[in-house]
C-alpha cells in the first residue's frame, strides 16, 4: 500500500497530469518519538512511529494497552510536543498545532454544565462557526443516535453508553475534517457495540470523512478500516501495516467470510505475541 501511494505521488510531479492530482494525505505522521520523564525515570512511550491517513480513508490502530496510542493522538492534536518527528495534514506541517482535528477522547469528558445539545456543539463554538444551522443539525443527529428527548438533559442523567454516543456526535459534528476516535465504543455492551459499528460503517460510507480510529477490538477494526496499523508494546512502534481488501460498501456478513477469519486470526496472533512479550519484559 505504501508503495502504491508513493507511485501516485511520483506521477503527480510529472507535468501535464494536473487534472488527476491526488490530494496530499489527510494526515501524515513521520518518525514520531516520545518519552516521559518522571522522577528521573525516562519512559519511552512512542518509538519512530510513521503512519498515514489518505483523504477519505478509515484507518485503525490496534495495539496492547499502554503502548502509547492515546499519547499519539495527543501529539497529533498538538496537546503534546513530540521529541522527534513531524505531523502534516493536507500537505502542510502542523506539528504542535492545535484545533486542526476533531477528537473523541477515551473518556467521554462531556461538560457537566452543558446540556447534551450544547455539548455536541462545542467544537464548532470554539472554532467560531455560526451555531443556528449547527443546532438544527445536532437535533437531527441526536435523534439518529437514539438520544432524542435528551437534548436538554445534563450528562449525568445519561448512561455511560449514551454519554459515549454524545461524545461521538461531538466529534462528528466538529468542523474539522479529520476525526481521531479513541476507543469510541469501549463502554458499550456487546450488542450496542455491534449496532454502533454497523451504524458507523454506514455513516462513514455515506460521508467518507478521514478517520483515525483506536480500538482493542480486532473484528471492529477489520470491519471498518481500509488499513490497520498493529502497534508493538511500549514503546509503541508500527509492527505491521495491513491493508484490508474488502470492497465497499461493506456489510456485516463479511465477518463470516474465510478471508475475514484468516485476517482476524493473523492479527489476533500478532496481538497475543505482543501482549505476552510485554508481560514477560515486565515480569
Amino acid at each position: 500500500m505504501s508503495e502504491e501511494t508513493q507511485i501516485q505521488h511520483s506521477t503527480t510531479e510529472t507535468p501535464g497530469s494536473s487534472q488527476a492530482v491526488p490530494a496530499p494525505p489527510a494526515l501524515e505522521v513521520k518518525g514520531i518519538s516520545k518519552a516521559y520523564t518522571e522522577r528521573r525515570r525516562v519512559t519511552s512511550v512512542l518509538n519512530n512511529v510513521s503512519l498515514k491517513v489518505e483523504q477519505q480513508e478509515f484507518v485503525s490502530i490496534v495495539g496492547p494497552s499502554g503502548c502509547g496510542k492515546s499519547t499519539l493522538f495527543h501529539i497529533i492534536g498538538g496537546l503534546e510536543q513530540p521529541d522527534a518527528g513531524t505531523i502534516s495534514m493536507n500537505g502542510s506541517l502542523v506539528t504542535g498545532q492545535r484545533g486542526e482535528i476533531s477528537y473523541m477522547p477515551q473518556q467521554p469528558a462531556l461538560f457537566p454544565w452543558r446540556t447534551i445539545e450544547d455539548n455536541v456543539l462545542i467544537a464548532g463554538e470554539i472554532k467560531g462557526v455560526p451555531q443556528d444551522q449547527a443546532r438544527e443539525e445536532a437535533r437531527h443527529w441526536l435523534a439518529k443516535v437514539g438520544l432524542s428527548g435528551f437534548e436538554r438533559a445534563y450528562p449525568h442523567m445519561l448512561s455511560g453508553g449514551m454519554q459515549q454516543r454524545a461524545a461521538f456526535l461531538r466529534a462528528l459534528l466538529a468542523p474539522q475534517e479529520l476525526m481521531l476516535l479513541d476507543e469510541p465504543f469501549s463502554a458499550l455492551d456487546a450488542l450496542t457495540r455491534s449496532e454502533m459499528q454497523r451504524w458507523l460503517l454506514e455513516l462513514w460510507e455515506e460521508n467518507r470523512r478521514s478517520v483515525l480510529f483506536i480500538t482493542h477490538n480486532i473484528e471492529e477494526a477489520l470491519l471498518l478500516s481500509n488499513r490497520i496499523y498493529v502497534f508493538s508494546g511500549r514503546p509503541g512502534s508500527v509492527l505491521h501495516t495491513v491493508d484490508i481488501p474488502f470492497p465497499r460498501p461493506r456489510r456485516e456478513e463479511i465477518t463470516d467470510s474465510p478471508e475475514f477469519l484468516l485476517l482476524k486470526r493473523q492479527l489476533s496472533q500478532w496481538m497475543r505475541e505482543e501482549q505476552e512479550k510485554s508481560a514477560t519484559t515486565k515480569g
Partner: peptide, 18 residues
C-alpha cells in the same frame, strides 16, 4: 478544572479566554 476536559478544549483549539 478537570484535566481531561482541559485537554479536549486545547485539542479543539480553544484559547486561554475560551
Amino acid at each position: 478544572s478537570d484535566g481531561i476536559m482541559l485537554n479536549y478544549m486545547k485539542m479543539a483549539g480553544a484559547g486561554k479566554w475560551q
